[in-house]
Amino acid sequence: MSRRGTPGMGRLEASGLLYGLYQKRLRRDLNRESLPKHVAMIIDGNRRWARQAGMTTVAHGHRAGAAKMHEFLEWCDELGIQVVTLYLLSSDNLTNRESGELGDLIDIIAQLADDLSHYRDWRVKHVGSATGLPPRLLEALADAEKRTAANTGMHINLAVGYGGRKEITDAMRSIVAAHHAEGGSLETLADLLTPDLIGEHLYTGGQPDPDLVIRTSGEQRLSDFMLWQSAHSEFYFVEALGPDLREVDFLRAVRDYSRRNRRFGG
Rank of each mutant, 00 (worst) to 15 (best):
S2P: 08
R4S: 09
G5E: 14
T6F: 04
R11H: 01
L12Q: 08
A14P: 02
S15A: 13
L17V: 13
L18C: 09
L18A: 15
R25M: 10
L30N: 05
L30V: 01
N31R: 12
S34W: 06
L35Y: 01
L35H: 02
H38M: 00
M41L: 15
I43F: 11
R47W: 00
R51L: 12
Q52I: 07
A59Q: 05
A59R: 11
H60D: 06
A64H: 04
A67C: 06
K68V: 05
C76F: 01
Y87M: 06
L88G: 08
N93E: 13
N96L: 02
N96T: 14
E98W: 05
L105D: 03
L105Y: 08
L112H: 08
D114I: 00
S117Q: 03
Y119K: 14
D121G: 05
G128N: 05
A130Q: 10
P135H: 12
L137M: 08
E139T: 15
K146S: 14
N151L: 06
N151D: 03
T152R: 15
G153L: 09
G153I: 05
L158H: 04
L158W: 03
G161D: 00
G164L: 04
K166L: 08
I168N: 00
S174H: 13
A177S: 09
A177D: 15
H180F: 08
E182W: 02
G183I: 09
T194V: 07
G199S: 05
Q207D: 12
P208S: 06
P208M: 05
T216Y: 13
D224I: 07
L227F: 11
S230Q: 02
E234N: 08
E234V: 12
Y236E: 12
R246H: 09
E247K: 15
V248N: 06
L251A: 14
L251E: 01
L251I: 07
R255W: 09
R260A: 02
R262N: 00
R263C: 03
G265E: 07
